[in-house]
Structures are given as C-alpha cells and as structure tokens.
Nucleic acid binder design. Structure first.
Lengths: 146, 146
DNA sequence: GCAGGCTGCTTGCAATTGCAAGCAGGGCGA
DNA sequence: TCGCCCTGCTTGCAATTGCAAGCAGCCTGC
C-alpha cells in the first residue's frame, strides 16, 4: 500500500538537489547513501527508510520535516487535537508524573465522550472503574470554575 | 552508525500503548501492522519504516512527529509550552468544561513546581520559568543527551 | 480436570531496501 | 583519435523489513 507519495518526494529531492547544485554522486556522498540508490529514490522507484530520508535531509540542509511532509508521512502542521497528547508530553514545565496524570485525565474525558457519543456498540473495552478512580484522584478538579 | 534510537523508540511506543490501554494485538490491528512485528519494534529488534511509524502514530493518536523525535530522526522542535495551553483549548475532542478542568490541573502542577523548585526531583531540572507565556516563545535549550 | 479466551513471543519466508560493480553517453584537452 | 572525468542509470546480491503461522503462559468459566 503506497501511502507514501514517493513520486513527488523523489521529484522534490531532485529539485532541491539541483537547486543546491549538487550532482547525484555528490549528494549521495554527502548523505552517506549510494548514488544508484539515490537515483532510484529520485525517480520514485524506491521508498527510502526514515533513516535515509533523514540523512538526505541533513545533506540538503533542509528540515527533515519538510521531506516527511513531502513524502506524505507527516501532516503539514497538526493542530487537530491529535496534538494535545503530544503537547502534554512535550511540555517542559511539568514533570513526567504530572504528564501522566494529565494524560490520564484527558483519556478519562475522551472515554467519557466516547461512551456518550456511541450508543450501544460491541465494545471491546468495557468501563474500567479502577482507572477512572485513579485518574479522578490524581486530577481531582475543583468544580468551582470562574 | 545507528542514528535511529530504536530502543527508546520501542519503549516509548510500548509506554504509549499501555497508556492507551491497548493490547499488542489491538494496536497492531488499529495500525494495520502485524502483532509480532509490533512486538519486535517495541523491543527494539526492528527499525520500523517511515510508513509503519506513521501508521502507529495515527493509531496511538499521537503526532507522527513525536515518534520521529523519539526515534531520533527528527530534531526536537519546541515551540510548545505555551502550546499546551493552546492545544488544550483547541482540542475538539473534549468540551469546554473539560478543557477548563485540564487547565486547572495544569495550573496546579505549575504552581506545585514553582513552590517546590529545588526540593523534589533530581532528574528533570527545568529552568523554573515564571512567566511561562513569554518564556515559551524563545527557544529553549535541550540537554543533548541521547 | 480442560476448553476458550486473553496476553506477548518465536520462527520461517516473501518482498523490499540499500549497495558494489559496471554501463552508456556527453564534454574537454592532447 | 584516444584518454579522462563527469553526468546519471542498470544490474545482481546481501541484509533487512514485515507477515502468517504457531507456541507458551495466564486467567476465567464449566
């Protein structure tokens, strides 16, 4: 299943290489990959692994992220709420235990909403009161909001 | 040289899977990969391709970016911190009351850390930023460790 | 007891990655 | 004309990915 947009990725790499005035061998050398392989990548015949992609990005002095976006394996910039989990984990202001607590609360909310939204379905994961309790204890929230 | 930090990547995936209360098979199914392969990834025996990584990220509801960072194939990009607040408010999966609750917990943690400052944890040593909003904008230092 | 479900792990095996070696062709100087 | 160096491409082949099938252990019910 080619969810990887290898075609445009290859074209993009070639374009960037040309733009940097590198020959195929030069870039291959700089990236630490073989030149025939780079050739095949650029023509869309091979899907480079994450590692190779990273090396190419470094050699081209472009962000690996850009390449991943081009390859269709990274969203442009995800702010769709998938990011909340990420944001929690990435936050430098709180420690690991606190992150876990926040995540636990978040998961509790998600599960809450999930149960409410989906009325009656074959549920593989029945309600687990234990975790809910645990979460509630850690993140016991003062209901009195402003 | 193995620029992929497969060990920590696997651990991280396993941790996130456990946290989401998925079994190995469940996550493997959701991600569209085989369960033995996922097992091997989690134990660091295999380096998943970019495609697989992406699918796992989707199934775990975390950003692929986070996984790439964990795998050591993407630089850590930190403009978070403020982002957590924003991310909470922007998240479409939880309602307004729940957002306020999360923010309240978050604030509690921040206050906790601010009070304790040098008392508790020996491992993580944040710079105890007080005005987190302004602070988060300037680039933070990542302790180059791994 | 023991059947059925779950958990994760091990084992071959096809398909793919990624590379060393070699090929075709275009300039350019002697 | 012949070398020589450059460009990119093609071709086997080892190593790796990723999977189907199967195994061992642990519960829970009968």
């Amino acid at each position: 299943m080619a969810s990887l947009n290898v075609g445009s990725l290859g074209e993009y790499i070639r374009e960037q290489r040309r733009h940097a005035q590198y020959s195929l061998r030069q870039l291959a050398d700089a990236a630490g990959v073989s030149n025939p392989y780079l050739s095949q990548i650029e023509r869309g015949l091979r899907k480079p692994s994450a590692e190779i992609l990273q090396q190419i990005a470094k050699a081209l002095r472009i962000s690996a992220e850009t390449l991943y976006v081009q390859a269709g394996i990274l969203e442009e910039r995800e702010e769709h709420g998938l990011g909340l989990r990420t944001a929690i984990l990435a936050d430098p202001l709180i420690n690991e235990r606190q992150k876990q607590a926040l995540l636990a609360v978040y998961d509790t909310f998600l599960k809450e909403n999930d149960v409410q939204q989906q009325a009656g379905d074959a549920n593989t994961d029945p309600d687990e009161p234990q975790t809910l309790e645990e979460n509630a204890q850690k993140g016991r929230i003062s209901d009195g909001d402003r």
